[in-house]
Design a protein around this nucleic acid. Sequence first.
RNA 1: CGGGGUGUGGCGCAGUUGGUAGCGCGCCUGGUUUGGGACCAGGAGGUCGAAGGUUCGAGUCCUUUCACCCCGACCA
Length: 571
Amino acid sequence: MRVSQLFGRTSKTAGNDYQIASHRLLTQGGFIRESTAGRYYLLPLGLKVHDRIIEIVRKHMDAAGAQELVMPVLHPLELWKETNRTTTTGFELMKITDRRGADFALGGTAEEMAVDLVRKFNISYKDLPFNIYQFSMKFRDEMRARGGLLRLREFVMKDAYSFGTEAQFKETYQKMWDTYKAIFDELGLKVDVVAADNGYIGGEYCHEFIAESEEGESRYFIDEQSGYAAHEDVAVFKIDDQNVGDELNELQQVDAERGNTMEDGVKFHNLPLWQQTKDVMYFDEATKRYVLAIIRGDFDVNETKLMQAADVWDLRHATDEEIREDLGSEPGFISPVGFPKKGKKTGYDVIIVADKSLRTVRNMYGGNNAKHKDLLNINIDRDYKADVEADIALAKPGYLSQDGGKLVAKKGIEVGNIFQLGYHYSKLMHDAEYTNESGTREKYYMGCYGLGVARTLAAIVEVHHDDKGMVWPANIAPYKAYLARLGDKPEVVAAADKLYEDLTQAGVAVLYDDRMETRPGEKFADADLLGIPYRVVISEKTIASNVFEVKKRTDTEAQMCNQDNVINILV
RNA sequence: CGGGGUGUGGCGCAGUUGGUAGCGCGCCUGGUUUGGGACCAGGAGGUCGAAGGUUCGAGUCCUUUCACCCCGACCA
């Protein structure tokens, strides 16, 4: 491709809106252009890289035995109703109505479609297991698009869906795990594989593939000794016993003229923070229930774990008014002891969720559901009962993992994930069954596997760039070589044209900077900005000494070589 | 959705107490240049995000609205 013909132009500057390296460089380099927030034009250079990534993903998916197909982008809303996901999805479903009034969802993920397709075939155990996948545009009405391609409202996702028996699943999951590792490895992205929360997708466990980056939105922990890695949402850690040997003392009501923070409690009673109860009042808008989370005073509540434990999904903090007027308690003095089962005014149910850490401490102290009233020697089971007891504690840097090593906090870009779905969809959807060996129908066991192509592209730029521009790994660079012609003298033009043709003949993808009257500095700057792996220079000087100048994007020094060498280096 | 901010040629910005819109980059033409983003001369390009209002007069003041950026909840 000749630069003079290339659609999309580089830019020397970028505005203040481009705060993230990948966003700025991809825009300046003419790889992408914003349409509206979260929706981008992918320009010829950007599309080339996008396509290379797709090729690599496809190669590995096919090698893993997955089969590519394409599903409609408009999903009948009926299907989403079947799994009740019109109300529970994390991303807002985009909806659309056709001329007959039929409702469709713009596909944001396609579990229902995959099941619907498979059940049309009346499959048997002989067909299992199999894995189908597609590359398709996904639409998500994200609350906030961010960082250029990092969080889009429209993006191409590779989404795969596996079907099999429960016994077969482990191998399928492992195969996808290995496949993802191989994909990201080939793409030049180091990823951490991290246990995470299934969220709206459903199922019991999943793993995210996260490229470590300051610009990432995913926070996770790693125990570098044991290799334990988990998303902040699900990370578990070792909780030390405190005074579990102590006798249970008698529950005692005391006046407590104190402020309503945890520190105020510590100061007033002169007792350790870990002995205090932390009581956090939530309300779930989805199920209209109050959730009282209780945890040891030196820990914080992990809201994701809490939502899992309480089986709710639209949690917010309760307001002071709700706490006072509906629940008859007092902010800062909430206690599970004698806490109402229902809201007085609203009649909404209250669920008490106790963290496991409450088993590591005895004779706790905390509020008594009234201003300036506290309780001493609170003990679970004896003084209150929890509706749910679970791990709802938030991991923090420096805590010990269950394997004993220190948890180190990291940030990164989630470029892919693999989900165990189990029977989640096959139970919710009718006829999601196969015929087993004895001729009866059984639910199949599923998994799904997502990978965002554009986000991966952005992550690669985040990891591979310097102050001059992008630095593409050779296998996904839009072109292998940037041929910069300096000067427009006929002999220079002739030599450059010839090398361009020769390299092209030899199968080297060359971006030929044939722009007339463009000065050398600008051509070098563009070569650097675009991050093409090799830069070849032809000028009067190189012609005079009968050489070509070749420089790797990552090197500072160029080398001189003859034509055969150029081709050898670049092929 | 909550909080903060911004909308003026393709891009980056200026525009004072309201007086009829400017600078840099880029683009086009001609010329001089050509190894790290040149210089000279000329030129094109803007219903100032949109709608309403106040006023003799609005980029500027008021109201409404839309879009975009940043922080939070969410995700490939």
